[in-house]
Amino acid sequence: MKKKCKSYKDASPKDNIPAGPLNEICIHPKNSNMNQYNKGTPNCNAVRMLLLNFRQEVRVHQAATLIFGPSNFNDPEDKASSPQEADFRLVIISEDLTWFRLVRPGFVTGGAYSVTLIFPFEGNYILFADFRSKRHPSITDKLKLYVKGALPPKSEGMMEKLVFSSGDLQMKIITEQAFRTETQNKIAVTIRKNGVPLRATDLTSCLGAMAHIILVRRNDKSFQHLHSEADENYPVIGRILFSRPGIYRMWIQFQTGNQLYTADFTLNVAESNAQ
C-alpha cells in the first residue's frame, strides 16, 4: 500500500508539526541550474524546512531573528547537509513584489539556521527556502510570514522595466525578441559602473554563484532561481523557459569590487502563439 504524505493541514500534535501560518509547503527538485517552485503535494521522501520560531510577533523596523530547521517526517535520519556556502539560501519578498532580499542564514548549534532581518512595512512576506539535504540535492520550500506595523505605500501598476539605475550602477536587459512562453528566452544584461562597462571577470562569487537571477510571477508567486552564465559581451546571462504568460518581477544580485548590488526589473511574458 502506498504511503500517504502528511501535510501541515492534516497533521496531529503527536506528529510534532507546528500549526499556524506555515501551512503552505511546496517542493521541487533542482533541474540543471534552475530551481523552480512548483505548487503541489510534496514528495513523501522530501525534507522540509520549518520556521521554528514562527509564533513570535514580527514588527516593521525592528530586528527580527528567524530560526529555521530542516526535518523529514518520513525519514528522521535525513538531515540537512553540513553547512557550506551554498547549502541554504533564503529569498524573501513582500507579497506585492516591491521588496526583496537574498541572504544565506548562518548555521547554529543543533542543526538549525538563523538570520536577522528588518522588514520595511506591514503585510505578508513570502520566504523561499532553497536548500539541500543529504539525500536530496536541492529543495525549495515556500513559507509565509506576516509582519505587523505601518502599511506600505500604495504601489503603482507594474509596467515592463528593462533598465535599472542606482548611484554609480546602470544595468540594461538586451532582448532580441519579446519574452514568450514555451521557447528558450535569453536574458542578456549589460552592466556599467561609473560609466565603464563591466565584464564577467569583474564579478566575484556571491553565495555560490557569480550572479543570482530570481524571478517571481505576479499572479501566483511562482518562483524560479537561475545561476547566471556570461560571455565576452554580457557579464550576466540567464536562460529560461517560461511555462505561463504574465508579469514577472526579476531581481539580479551580484558582487563586484567587494560591494553587493541588487537590481530589480519587470518582464512581460506573452503566450507563444499570441500575435
Score class of each variant (00 low, 15 high):
Lys3Pro: 12
Lys3Met: 13
Lys4Cys: 11
Cys5Ile: 14
Asp15Cys: 10
Ile17Val: 15
Pro18Thr: 00
Ala19Tyr: 06
Gly20Ile: 10
Gly20Ser: 06
Gly20Met: 09
Pro21Ile: 12
Pro21Tyr: 04
His28Gln: 02
Lys30Gln: 07
Lys30Glu: 07
Asn31Ser: 08
Ser32Trp: 02
Met34Phe: 05
Met34Ala: 04
Lys39Cys: 10
Lys39Leu: 09
Gly40Pro: 08
Gly40Glu: 05
Thr41Glu: 04
Thr41Val: 14
Pro42Cys: 13
Asn43Gly: 13
Cys44Lys: 13
Asn45Ile: 15
Ala46Asn: 14
Ala46Gly: 12
Val47Pro: 15
Arg48Lys: 08
Leu51Phe: 04
Gln56Tyr: 11
Val58Tyr: 15
Val58His: 14
Thr65Val: 12
Gly69Asp: 10
Gly69Thr: 07
Ser71Ala: 14
Pro76Gly: 14
Ala80His: 14
Ala80Asp: 10
Gln84Met: 15
Asp96Val: 11
Leu97Pro: 12
Leu97Tyr: 03
Thr98Trp: 14
Thr98Asp: 13
Trp99Asp: 09
Val103Pro: 03
Val103Phe: 15
Val103Trp: 14
Gly106Leu: 12
Phe107Ser: 10
Thr109Met: 06
Gly111Tyr: 15
Gly111Pro: 13
Ala112Pro: 12
Val115Gly: 07
Val115Asn: 03
Thr116Met: 11
Ile118Pro: 08
Ile118Arg: 07
Phe119Trp: 04
Phe121Cys: 03
Glu122Ala: 13
Gly123Val: 15
Asn124Thr: 09
Phe128Ala: 03
Phe128Asn: 04
Phe131Gln: 01
Arg132Gly: 01
Arg132Phe: 00
Ser133Cys: 13
Ser133Arg: 11
Arg135Trp: 05
His136Phe: 09
His136Ala: 03
Ser138Phe: 06
Ser138Gly: 08
Lys142Asp: 02
Leu143Asp: 04
Lys148Met: 09
Ala150Val: 09
Pro152Ala: 05
Pro152Cys: 09
Pro152Thr: 09
Glu156Met: 10
Glu156Thr: 11
Gly157Leu: 13
Met159Gly: 01
Met159Ser: 01
Phe164Tyr: 04
Gly167Lys: 03
Asp168Lys: 12
Gln170Met: 07
Met171His: 10
Met171Asp: 04
Ile173Phe: 02
Ile173Glu: 01
Thr175Trp: 02
Glu176Ile: 13
Glu176Ser: 11
Gln177Ser: 12
Ala178Asn: 13
Thr181Cys: 05
Gln184Gly: 04
Ala188Asp: 14
Ala188Arg: 15
Val189Asp: 03
Val189Lys: 07
Thr190His: 09
Ile191Glu: 06
Lys193His: 10
Asn194Phe: 06
Pro197Cys: 10
Leu198Val: 14
Ala200Gly: 04
Asp202Glu: 12
Leu207Pro: 14
Leu207His: 01
Ile213Trp: 01
Ile214Thr: 04
Val216Lys: 02
His225Asp: 07
Asp231Gly: 10
Asn233Pro: 04
Pro235Asn: 06
Pro235Ser: 02
Val236Arg: 03
Val236Leu: 06
Val236Thr: 00
Ile237Thr: 01
Leu241Met: 07
Ser243Phe: 02
Pro245Arg: 07
Pro245Phe: 09
Gly246Arg: 00
Gly246Gln: 00
Tyr248Ser: 00
Arg249Leu: 02
Phe254Asn: 00
Thr256Asn: 00
Asn258Ala: 01
Gln259Lys: 09
Ala263Ser: 02
Ala263Trp: 05
Asp264Pro: 08
Phe265Tyr: 05
Thr266Ile: 10
Thr266Lys: 04
Leu267Trp: 04
Leu267Thr: 00
Val269Pro: 08
